[in-house]
C-alpha cells in the first residue's frame, strides 16, 4: 500500500545524506516504469492508428538527450533557472510516458533548481545517466510485449 502511494505521488524514498563526489549508495530499487500509464497510452490505439506507444516513444527518445545536455550545462555553469526548466521538461515528458524513475529524479533536480541552486544536482545527473539506459531498455521490452 505504501509503495503504491509512493508511486502514485512520486514521494521520494527516504535516503541517507550523500556527498556530491561519490555515487549514492544503492537505494531500494523502485519500479522503473508506471505500467498504468503505458497501458493507457496503448489504449489510444484504434483503426488506422495501430501503435500510438511507438510514436510517443520515438518523440521521447528524440527529445530527451538534448534535455540531458541542458541539465549538464546548467550544472556546469551553475544556472539554477536553466536547471529548473530542463528538469521540469524532462520530468513532465517522462511522467507522461510512464518513465516513472526518470521523472522522480528529474523532479528532484527541478526542486533543486527552484530553490535557486544547482548544488546536489550532479550526483542525481550521474544516477540518471545510469538509470536512463535501463529505462529505455524496459520501455522497449514493454513495447514488444503483448497488451495485457
Amino acid at each position: 500500500m505504501l509503495r503504491w502511494l509512493r508511486e502514485m505521488f512520486s514521494i521520494p524514498t527516504p535516503q541517507p545524506a550523500s556527498t556530491p563526489d561519490r555515487p549514492p549508495p544503492p537505494a531500494a530499487m523502485p519500479e522503473l516504469l508506471d505500467r498504468r500509464v503505458l497501458d493507457e497510452i496503448r489504449s489510444f490505439g484504434g483503426p488506422g492508428h495501430p501503435d500510438p506507444l511507438a510514436e510517443v516513444m520515438e518523440v521521447y527518445f528524440a527529445h530527451t538527450p538534448p534535455r540531458f545536455a541542458e541539465i549538464r550545462d546548467a550544472i556546469g555553469t551553475g544556472d539554477a533557472e536553466a536547471l529548473r526548466m530542463a528538469a521540469h521538461t524532462l520530468k513532465s515528458s517522462s511522467a507522461s510516458i510512464g518513465a516513472a524513475a526518470v521523472a522522480r529524479l528529474a523532479g528532484r533536480m527541478e526542486a533543486i533548481g527552484r530553490a535557486g541552486t544547482v548544488t546536489g544536482a550532479a550526483p542525481l545527473l550521474r544516477e540518471l545517466d545510469v538509470l536512463f539506459p535501463q529505462v529505455k531498455q524496459a520501455l522497449e521490452t514493454y513495447c514488444k510485449s503483448e497488451p495485457s
Binding site: 489510444f44 492508428h49 521521447y60 527529445h63 513532465s92 515528458s93 507522461s96
Partner: peptide
C-alpha cells in the same frame, strides 16, 4: 513546450 505531452494529448 514539451512535445511528448503534446503528442499524448493529441493521441488521447
Amino acid at each position: 513546450d514539451e512535445p511528448v505531452t503534446r503528442l499524448l494529448l493529441r493521441q488521447a
